[in-house]
Design a protein around this nucleic acid. Structure first.
Lengths: 194, 194, 194, 194
DNA sequence: TATGAATGAGTCTTCATTCAT
DNA sequence: CATGAATGAAGACTCATTCAT
């Protein structure tokens, strides 16, 4: 038991180190040796937990993506109305992106870069199913615009990634009122105007 | 004249090669030697035009960013009304992002990655001034929501980057009606609802 | 234990190879790859023992300089009279320079060239202290000329470097009688004439 | 005439640049391009005057060596007595080594390094003939010790190189009295003691 | 399981040299 | 004569990965 825990700890340390280093330096300029050092293990040890560097970064991506979606849907359930559900999910996502920015930045980098291989990207997408289901319901009920899910995501969710990035880069900080405003814009952009 | 032209051609070939290779393989996994080969020059020749790899990618970024904004504002002028102006700019940007996707992808990768250094990023941002001016005017006239420019950009412009990316990755293709719909969503999200 | 020894052996092999190659080809024209090959290791292995090429050559210099002075003073002790002590030291130095010419040549090249950095040169000088002490004593006793240590070194010791060099280059060979003659000249040149 | 002069000027500029750069950086770390820049010519121009880098440095060596010996023997003639002649030559050499230290350093580096090829070294040695002749005469007259010319050179002349080097490196400066003292040591070391 | 040492393959960059003008 | 542009070859150094322990 103690041994297993130690293993898990090491794996987590490696994944954490990968995120931090890739965020700050990019995938290039993040050698395995540095990851090992930051995780307090030998370079060789990495290969006990991951097949190679690609596998390490793939698994890190899936791990973070999973954490992300679990957080997003943690307080949501199918019984909620569409608008209530959307608000809950959206605000959880906003919370994740803007406060857990280490993880969010890592996802942004992976999603705009060819460092993650296709299968892992697909694997990561799966987790968003509840949101797509909600939208399907919303469209059926005439509450949400009958447009491509891609468009809905582009306008309702993705702006949060951009805001997280600018928040990280510039002095700009999103406070509570900003977020409420942002939510309104997001909802306005996808809800059907009566 | 002929000599100067040849020089310019070579520099352009190098920049073009950089974009294509970085798009497909990432900054890492894009060796100078491959860039040279694709541009039909010797590796050593790159260093006649650029100080080093970082400089090459910085300058490529600025070049593309400039091209992007020139395209965006080419048909716009200050005499236009706010909504007319916005529509014109937005559609030019959409056109650029969705059709000149090589360039757009490159920008997306640079903007979500630490491969470009800070000064060059700043340099690239400058070019968007006309859009910020338009928004200022729109806010004064009560046409555009009185919210942070960052929010406006996040909702009105940035989704196009996401759509470009998914279009590149999946089979999903944005046709004319999609774009018109997207434009409506964009405009809805930033205009003041009367 | 065995592992440590192996490490030391490798380091020594690298230093030996450096000396031989730099002697024959100069610092330029001595690529790391050749040093590695001669030491029977991979080029990358050099960097486990030395920071970079400069560090390798610096450390080699200090190593050889240390060996040189240890040899020079091995049979000397402070109880000896000034003239006895000088003869003993001088002959040890002559022995080193003329017989261990690989090491001596390396030092000559380093001392007449900007390949070693200043700190390492300083480090190397330290070891000659016993000789300077002897001269101080000699001057106090009125046995050795009251002139700058630099002059004493220039006339008493440095000629051996020149002789080593010509011996290496030309057919000229210093035999026992030569050396005795040389010693007499050296001693004549620094002792006080009564 | 003007054209020829211009050519000579360029050649001289190249040689001067070579000396300065090799002195400060060593033969390695002295690229042709830097030499060209310092001499205010194009890299390609070097090859109009010299076959290649080796040839450039060889010819520079011979040039400097010639200048050195011409200076050494300029005020000497065969009618002088041995001791007068030696003093005159020695002091000219001292003057050259200690005051024209750029040139002297260059020679020191060449003489302790494998950067000059054998033929050029031989070529450089020739010029010392008058000194060897003087010594021959001195030995015949019983004024100078009947020992190898190499030993004579090692003790009478070579120390000046060492002194030049330390003067360049440390704060130590040889003034008039030092030089007179040095001359006495030199002469003491090779003259026959009566 | 864990590791430090070792390395082959590759990367960026430099440089002596050439050549078209 | 003179040159700036161009380059092939080579060099220092790094790094993902392996292996003996």
């Amino acid at each position: 038991m103690a041994k297993l825990q130690k293993s898990i700890d090491k794996r987590n340390a490696l994944i954490k180190a990968t995120i931090e280093l890739v965020n700050n330096n990019g995938f290039h300029a993040t050698p395995m040796s540095k990851i090992a050092k930051m995780a307090n293990v030998s370079p060789a040890t990495i290969y006990l937990y991951f097949e190679n560097k690609q596998d390490l970064v793939n698994q890190t991506y899936i791990e973070v993506k999973t954490e992300y979606s679990e957080y997003a849907f943690a307080t949501y359930n199918n019984d909620m109305s569409v608008d209530e559900g959307f608000e809950i999910i959206w605000k959880r996502i906003a919370d994740f992106k803007l406060n857990d920015s280490e993880n969010a930045m890592f996802l942004a980098q992976c999603d705009n870069t060819p460092i993650i291989d296709e299968p892992s990207l697909q694997e990561g997408i799966k987790h968003l199913q509840p949101l797509l289901d909600l939208w399907k319901r919303g469209k059926e009920e005439g509450i949400i615009k009958p447009i491509s899910d891609y468009l809905l995501y582009a306008y309702a969710i993705n702006p949060l990634s951009f805001l997280m990035m600018t928040q990280k880069r510039s002095a700009f900080k999103l406070d509570e009122t900003h977020i409420e405003a942002a939510y309104q814009v997001a909802w306005d952009s996808i809800k059907v105007n009566k």
